[in-house]
Amino acid sequence: MGRDGDAARAELTVRARGLAARFKGRGGRLALDGFDLDVAPGEIVGLLGPNGAGKTTALRLLSTGRRPSAGSLSILGLDPSRPRRAIRRRTGIAGDEPVHVAALTGWENALGFAMAAGLSRAEGEQRVGALLDRFGLSPDAHRPVSEYSLGMRRKLLLLEALVHEPALLILDEPTAGLDVQARALLADVLKERARAGAAVVLATNDLAEAERLCDRVVFLHAGRAVLEGPPAVLIARLGGKTRFEFTLVAAMAPDIRVSGVEIALATAGKLVAHATNGSSPLPALCEAIQRAGAAIVAVAVRRPGLDDVFLKATGQELAS
């Protein structure tokens, strides 16, 4: 690789090669084994995989909360084996547990974090105020966190990760415990931060969210990255077929033929069809069924998703 390759490497926010880490305890099994990851500025990358695949361990290494037992890691162009404060100052982390001082108010917790992250009190107050507004926490800002719901505490955690406008955001299950509106808001905020040049690495079991939010997903299985790419590309390549399930009222099983559609089951009450080209054959299918003399009572369409991709790649169900 020449000078261009070196420049590209230097520009990466995260560059991990062959990372390994063991679960705690003597002789603990490998939680990560030869894990590679590149994340560019402005990119949102999702780590997906079943429980125990190594997602949280990977995030801990990236957040400098833990050192790898093998491999090389560069974050924001810095080596995390040296003093890690420079990396931490530019990283925002929201773990899976919303740990706060329960006796303090949301405002106090957030301001404390802003100050710990290096903001002056005045700057911290201004940013915390704006983020509390944005996350809809302003009415409860001066209530103790002990009175917050789990969703509110998770919002506060995310707000604290964002308050110093970090160049790298590391989020573990960021949508867990959030309602639909808060999820949409979080997606907006993360996309804004990415547009401003921040890299986002998140681990999630919410595949639909990952599909909507991430520019790229990385599937982990037994501590290794087994597959990666943009969600739409992976689904198109490996997701398989779209499934149409019609509930019918008919005197007999309809005999239909539609180009690009494979009929898996046809009875007087039910018709199941598969198509490789997404939902586009649906109108033609409906028309064909009605022409065959059957009435459609209901139709369910199941698009292939990231869970199908994982199943295809590993031969295992992606249990959350």
Binding site: G65, R88, R89, I93, G95, E97, A116, A117
Partner: peptide, 14 residues
């Protein structure tokens, strides 16, 4: 034990 000190340290505070 509850991870508070670790969270503080991850902000980059000395």
């Amino acid at each position: 034990e509850r991870g508070w000190i670790h969270r503080l340290l991850l902000t980059g505070i000395h």
